[in-house]
């Protein structure tokens, strides 16, 4: 038996006095702490220092070469200027809308794709593929497809005698349209994660429930949904982090426009950077930092609480 080889490693505490350390403990020196050093140096230099520096520079008027302390001026401007304030509100709307849609759609698709269905491989591949392609490419693609005058979508709508809105050019629609494209691009990853979660549920549960004559709705409600909780947590956390920080798609489609109607904090940061207001841009970064951590830290500890107990 393999255990006989391991026997000496087990009773470490019992043989105190003699050599003091069992082989298990001696092994510690074979896991050198300096293995951390290269990663820690990179993390500190390129991530931690800029993050801490951002707290200071957000309080300054800053030209990269010299900075002048102005207290909370940048933050006051950020929350008073309606254009910047809009970006703040839109960040929440965009983050929560895309995340909720990805959870609901992703879960529905995962339930369908893990059940008996034709061409599962094709469906899985086609739903997932947009996740892998360039966000800028997707943005350009949909800008053409949703073009108010020539785009395919409006051509179809016109054919059906339905209104043909300016998807990216109507201030009331722009942010929602971008969110819809974001969902189109990202739902595949949510589906995939939910599928992995559902497949991991032991089959006996489903069989036993079916034996007892449970309807498929009852099975979904009492088995599939509660037992895919870890997958649910992963999807919510990942999609919300991505949604609150999202920039690429917005910049590739509307650039925050028309006007400022589809700006989010991340695009405000870029615009202020382009305009040379580095202090204000960094203040935006600090606001984004606070928003993301204030939402994600309580949320992820709440979502993970149950699974830690198991």
């Amino acid at each position: 038996m393999a255990t006989t080889n391991l026997a000496p490693t087990l009773p470490v505490g019992a043989t105190s006095g003699g050599k003091g350390t069992g082989p298990r403990k001696k092994m510690k020196s074979f896991y050198p702490s300096w293995f951390f050093i290269p990663a820690v140096v990179m993390y500190v230099v390129f991530f931690a220092i800029p993050t801490f520096a951002s707290f200071y520079f957000s309080l300054t008027r800053w030209s990269l070469f010299d900075s002048q302390f102005i207290g909370l001026g940048n933050f006051v401007q950020f929350f008073q200027d309606p254009q910047l304030w809009n970006g703040f509100i839109h960040t929440f709307e965009y983050g929560f809308a895309t995340s909720a849609a990805k959870v609901v759609l992703g879960f529905a698709l995962a339930v369908i794709l893990t059940g008996p269905i034709l061409a599962r491989g094709y469906l899985r591949a086609i739903i997932f593929f947009p996740v892998l392609i360039s966000t800028i490419g997707v943005g350009i693609m949909f800008k053409s497809l949703l073009d108010p005058f020539h785009g395919m979508v409006n051509a179809v709508l016109g054919f059906l005698h339905l209104p043909q809105p300016g998807w990216f050019t109507d201030p009331a629609l722009a942010l929602g349209t971008i969110a819809a494209v974001d969902i189109w691009k990202g739902v595949g990853i949510a589906t995939l994660i939910f599928m992995a979660g559902i497949v991991a549920i032991p089959n006996e549960y489903f069989e036993a429930a079916r034996m007892d004559g449970a309807s498929s709705w009852a099975i979904l409600r009492t088995i599939t949904i509660p037992l895919s909780r870890p997958a649910m947590a992963t999807v919510i956390i990942l999609s919300l982090i991505g949604g609150l920080r999202s920039f690429d798609l917005i910049w590739a489609t509307t650039g925050g426009g028309p006007g400022f109607t589809s700006d989010v904090i991340a695009s405000v940061i870029y615009k202020q950077y382009q305009a040379g207001f580095y202090g204000l841009s960094t203040a935006g970064n600090v606001v984004l930092f606070v928003v993301v951590t204030a939402i994600m830290v309580p949320l992820s500890s709440f979502l993970n609480r149950k699974t830690v107990e198991l």
């Binding site: 230099v45 800053w62 970064n285």
Partner: peptide, 15 residues
């Protein structure tokens, strides 16, 4: 933290 915190862009340029 590295997973959640958005990178501070202009300070990274400064660095």
């Amino acid at each position: 933290a590295g997973l959640i915190v958005p990178p501070a862009v202009v300070p990274t340029i400064w660095l």
